[in-house]
């Protein structure tokens, strides 16, 4: 579905039908990039291994080139030195692309609250699914991937997508509060 034709369809019955179809095909053939940063990558590898068998969801083909991948599983802590590399790999992936922050280090920095580690991969790339755990067991990764599949299935296209992006941005701006107003952990 990478022709670009679906992006030009008018909204309405036709587009919503194409959306469902495109979502069904997209979620059934997600190709992750081979990109492990630390210990979480071991759990990611065992998820692909026969016991958990990621091939059941059409995801066994880990692409070594980001140009052939559409899901980046950030498995491990992102150091400041790795951040530009991470961004470049993300930029090289073709649209549509998704990012899964696997483990607490990739999601928020985890227990490494220091100058060497980026406090969450979402400072560098937009993250679609945050997965806690240190490291998350393969079932947790499968659960996050299935949640991402639901998200991919409901992803709007064309005009609907632009509207959805604008609505999400407006909601995020409306919900943003100054840090001094926050209490508890969010602060």
């Amino acid at each position: 579905m990478g022709v670009g034709l679906e992006e030009k369809l008018p909204s309405g019955f036709l587009l919503s039908t194409v959306e469902k179809l495109a979502g069904y095909f997209r979620k059934g053939s997600v190709w992750p990039a081979t990109f492990g940063l630390a210990c979480c990558a071991i759990e990611m590898m065992s998820t692909v291994a026969p016991r958990f068998d990621l091939a059941r969801f059409g995801m066994e083909a880990f692409r070594a080139s980001p140009r052939q991948a559409d899901l980046m599983i950030i498995a491990g802590r992102v150091s400041q030195k790795m951040a530009p590399v991470l961004r470049q790999i993300y930029d090289q992936m073709p649209e549509p692309k998704w990012v899964l922050a696997m483990g607490v280090c990739a999601s928020s920095g985890g227990m490494f609250n220091n100058y060497a580690i980026v406090q969450g991969a979402d400072h560098v790339v937009p993250v679609d699914i945050y997965l806690p755990g240190c490291p998350p067991r393969p079932e947790m990764l499968l659960h996050a991937i299935l949640k991402l599949h639901d998200k991919i299935q409901q992803m709007p296209l064309g005009v609907n997508r632009q509207e959805a992006i604008a609505a999400a941005e407006a909601a995020a701006l409306a919900a943003a509060r100054p840090t001094v107003d926050l209490t508890g952990l969010p602060r």
């Binding site: 999601s107 755990g133 240190c134 998350p136 996050a144």
Partner: peptide
């Protein structure tokens, strides 16, 4: 997104108020 599941909090709790479950489906 910070918790590493080490269980030191459970060890520290004086009243056994905090324990851990087997539930792991969080994303």
């Amino acid at each position: 997104l910070r918790c590493i599941g080490c269980g030191l909090c459970v060890e520290a709790c004086p009243t056994r108020a905090l324990t851990m479950t087997n539930e792991y489906e969080m994303a």
